[in-house]
């Protein structure tokens, strides 16, 4: 049986990728979804909202409504102080972790 490795890896990091995107600038759902779908991190906008709900419930992300100049009012999401701390903690672990995995797994050779 072949395990979907990509899906398992995405599950472990997608929350932090969302925090990382939102840490750059507050963003509305559609734009956030496009950024994640285009990078292959989520399958559709349907994947995004349950994760956003969990991040909000944990106090890592908050939302606010903002009227755009030309378009409709949108719900924006931003990282909270607690979310920034969580992201910083993840960054600390990610570099050494990725290096260790790379050392152990190596690169694909023909």
């Amino acid at each position: 049986m072949t395990v979907d490795v990509g899906a398992q890896l995405r599950k472990g990091v997608v929350e932090y990728c969302i925090l990382g995107l939102l840490a750059t600038e507050p963003t509305y759902g559609w734009k956030l979804s496009e950024g994640l779908v285009s990078r292959g991190l989520i399958a559709s906008i349907g994947t995004l909202y349950p994760i956003l709900g969990r991040l909000r419930a944990q106090g890592l992300v908050s939302s606010f409504d903002q009227q755009s100049d030309a378009g409709p009012s949108r719900r924006y999401y931003r990282v909270t102080e607690s979310g920034h701390r969580q992201l910083a903690a993840f960054r600390t672990h990610w570099g050494p972790f990725a290096r260790t995995v790379h050392e152990l797994v190596g690169e694909d050779t023909p």
Binding site: Y28, G29, W30, S33, I45, G46, Y49, L52, G53, P72, S73, R74, R75
Partner: peptide, 8 residues
Amino acid sequence: GIVAGIAE
């Protein structure tokens, strides 16, 4: 959230 996000 999904419906409102797409509707907007």
